[in-house]
């Protein structure tokens, strides 16, 4: 199985690449659309600011690729900023339109004592997308978050798991058809992170 990691110049791709490789899949880190289209699934990572990331995706025509991926019902996993880009809109730096695959907007935390939301928080499962059905997850429920903006006004049907940060409900995993988003970093989230990545990969395997 081959996984394409979308390289659009935003952030650290090495850890994601290594985590996937440890799970025994072939990984290709590239911005080349043909190569990405030939992969069984793609990962959209990202750290940095939302407007910069959208601009890079547009300049490199990767926006079109992502929509084509959705159209073809092929799996995509957005991680951290990569998940936020899949929502409709973000207020980070300057109001910017997102890819609109998930319902909801990206807003800055408000009324919490510390920003970023940084560290290990537990996630509660709300819905089970196909790739999580029959998955054996470890008892540990903590994953590693690090972000100052979060998805809100979401569609409850698309919410898979959330964390509670001082009373704010933070979407941790979202799902819409073949597209999945994780706000936390599964590649940095110990045992549970590995198990979630593995389940997602098994879901990919079942569809290809």
């Amino acid at each position: 199985m081959k996984i394409g990691v979308i390289d659009y110049g935003m952030g650290n791709l090495f850890s994601v690449e290594q985590a996937l490789k440890r799970l025994g899949v072939e990984v290709l880190v590239t911005a080349d659309q043909q190569q990405l289209a030939a992969a069984d699934a793609v990962v959209l990572p990202g750290v940095g600011a939302f407007p910069d990331a959208m601009k890079r995706l547009e300049e490199t025509k990767l926006v079109d690729f992502i929509y084509a991926q959705k159209e073809a019902n092929k799996p995509l996993l957005g991680i951290c900023l990569g998940m936020q880009l899949l929502f409709e809109h973000s207020v980070e730096v300057a109001p910017t339109k997102g890819l609109g695959i998930f319902t909801g907007t990206i807003e800055r935390f408000n009324g919490v004592s510390r920003i970023p939301h940084m560290g290990w928080n537990d996630v509660a499962l709300q819905n089970e997308p196909q790739w999580l059905q029959n998955a054996t997850l470890p008892e540990a429920r903590h994953v590693y978050f690090v972000h100052s903006f979060y998805a809100t006004n979401i569609d409850e049907q698309q919410l898979v798991a959330y964390a509670d940060y001082e009373g704010v409900r933070v979407p941790g995993i979202v799902s819409n058809g073949s597209f999945t988003g994780m706000q936390f970093h599964p590649e940095k989230s110990g045992e549970l992170g590995v198990a979630l990545l593995q389940s997602w990969l098994e879901g990919v395997k079942r569809t290809c």
Partner: peptide
């Protein structure tokens, strides 16, 4: 750093 990132799943 590279070796640590390749073998460790914590930040």
């Amino acid at each position: 750093v590279r070796q640590t990132a390749a073998s460790l799943a914590i930040p």
